[in-house]
Amino acid sequence: MVMLVENGFRSFHPYVQICYYLFIGSLLMYFNHPIFLTTALILLIFVNLSHDSGKALKKWIVILILMSLIIILLNPFLVSRGTTILFYFRGKQVTLEAIIYGITMALFIVNILMMFVSFNVILNGNRFLYIFSKFLPRTAFLIMMSIRFVPLFKRRLDEISDVHHIRGMSMAVGSIKNRMKNGMLRLQIVLTWSLEEAVHTADSMKARGYGLGKKTSYIPYYMKKQDWAWLVTLCLLFALCIAGGTLGYGKLIIYPKLGTLHFFLIDWIVFGCMMILFSFPLWVEGRERLRWKF
């Protein structure tokens, strides 16, 4: 994994990547115009496709569709705010505003989850922790070590459950209470097994000089020219979007009365900035594909 040659969006510095996710996350919370959010959704789908041709997305797709359907269908019946009344349901008003709000809410949640699907593919393990290791070195180290323990403990649990199995202590049959007891016993064995060893690990760390100097990263990342260039571009685009947003562009007034869906000139500018910002991974990947071919 360490020697894997990374290209495209993955080859960027973790700082640039986290900035991208922070920016699109804030913009998703900032804008609520359905056209903005739908465009963002389409772009995020393409971003996810460009990472791993949609493998990570596939696991989520059913949940995402179900969830957004539930929100869109339920919201108008749960919330009766708004002035444009469409019809009455069991004596309660069902309003156009609540329907539109349900749609933007569903779009928002789906967008945020899509963003995290991509986030989990790009900023996994090392990169995620690298971001914290600069200003919270010890915490990052604690998390890193804890992550390392997880596969180890899983292996130990497997061994223990094999032994338990032979002794007839099963997790598959029996009363719930017994099964809970057996599961917890396995965990307890892992605990006692690992406690002593943790001390040995710590002593060995100390013997190798842990804590004597500044912590270094296993995989070093350097900010290259293209990282800086993109970081500045992303910041500029983000600033433009926020500036537009504070003036009310890219936002739809829903309650108490639905505002106009119409786009003004500045709406288009903000919209363009947002599109360029969201499709940053696509620009990078696309450029590399073109270079490869021609």
Binding site: R138, F141, L142, I143, M145, S146, I147, F149, V150, F153, K154, L157, L187, V190, L191, S194, L195, A198, V199, T201, A202, D203, M205, K206, Y210, G211
Partner: peptide
């Protein structure tokens, strides 16, 4: 914080996570 304490905390967090 002692090195031992960091390792113990990491271990306990891992146990909680795989629980």
């Amino acid at each position: 914080v002692k090195a031992r304490e960091i390792v113990i905390l990491a271990m306990l967090a891992a146990i909680a996570a795989i629980a």
